[in-house]
């Protein structure tokens, strides 16, 4: 008998004569406490919670964000930015920066990870990705990697910048996954990100920049 058969047989024997329990899921228990009555309230809550975990939040607009981002990166002395030219925000960024004569090098993701792993780990200073939504209740960004913006874009570079459209901020996780109907088709990897990587494993002292980004900047596009 295979391991699978043995395990399944014992589990089924354990349940013999009993019924599956009814589904008593009560969505109000995961939504009631986490309701906010306007986009402004959601933006405020998300901002407050993200800031509490060492994240910089800037409120900007569809038109202005490339400039705001540029200023932020210049202040930090960032030499290059990993971005996805094929995305709408990627192309907007490269156009805007080109016009203004950018001194920050824009790096596209170049081929499969195996071909440039070392460069990604050692030379990329910052990255920009979009997001599919936010969660006000917990101060969270939902990131849905794809071929244009691979999984590691939001993980390996020491500084990660995420764009978040204010209108896509849901009250809570339950609302977000229901309105976007995640269950009908999950991507290979879906991420909820709430701040830069952190650890409290040594004496419970909080330290940012454990293995992933040391810093996270969120640009909230208020008119989108």
């Amino acid at each position: 008998m295979s391991a699978r058969d043995g395990i399944m047989r014992r589990l089924r024997a354990g349940l013999e004569g009993s019924q599956p329990r009814p589904d008593e899921f009560d969505a109000t228990l995961v939504t009631r406490t986490w309701r906010y009555d306007s986009t402004e309230a959601r933006v405020e809550r998300l901002t407050r919670l993200l800031e509490a975990v060492h994240t910089e939040v800037h409120r900007t607009t569809q038109g202005d964000w490339p400039q705001r981002l540029y200023e932020q990166l210049r202040t930090r002395g960032i030499p290059n930015l990993l971005f996805a030219p094929e995305t709408p925000h990627g192309s907007q960024l490269s156009k805007a920066w080109e016009v203004n004569g950018s001194e920050i090098h824009l790096t596209p993701w170049d081929g499969p990870i195996e071909e440039w792993k070392e460069t990604l780990f050692n030379d990329v200073s910052a990255s920009l990705t979009g997001s599919v939504g936010g969660i006000a209740a917990t101060g969270t960004l939902a990131i849905w990697p794809d071929r244009h913006e691979p999984r590691l874009m939001s993980l390996v570079p020491p500084l990660h910048i995420a764009l978040l459209k204010a209108s896509t901020i849901a009250d809570n996780l339950y609302d977000l996954m229901q309105t976007q109907d995640w269950a009908s088709g999950m991507p290979t990897n879906l991420l909820l990100v709430s701040g830069p990587s952190k650890t409290a494993d040594i004496e419970q002292v909080l330290a940012y920049g454990a293995h992933g980004p040391k810093e996270l900047i969120t640009l909230i596009l208020e008119d989108a």
């Binding site: 013999e16 004569g17 009993s18 329990r21």
Partner: peptide, 12 residues
């Protein structure tokens, strides 16, 4: 009341 089987999965 829900499931009288001795094998029924319990809740508290």
């Amino acid at each position: 009341f829900y499931d009288a089987s001795p094998n029924a999965t319990r809740i508290v």
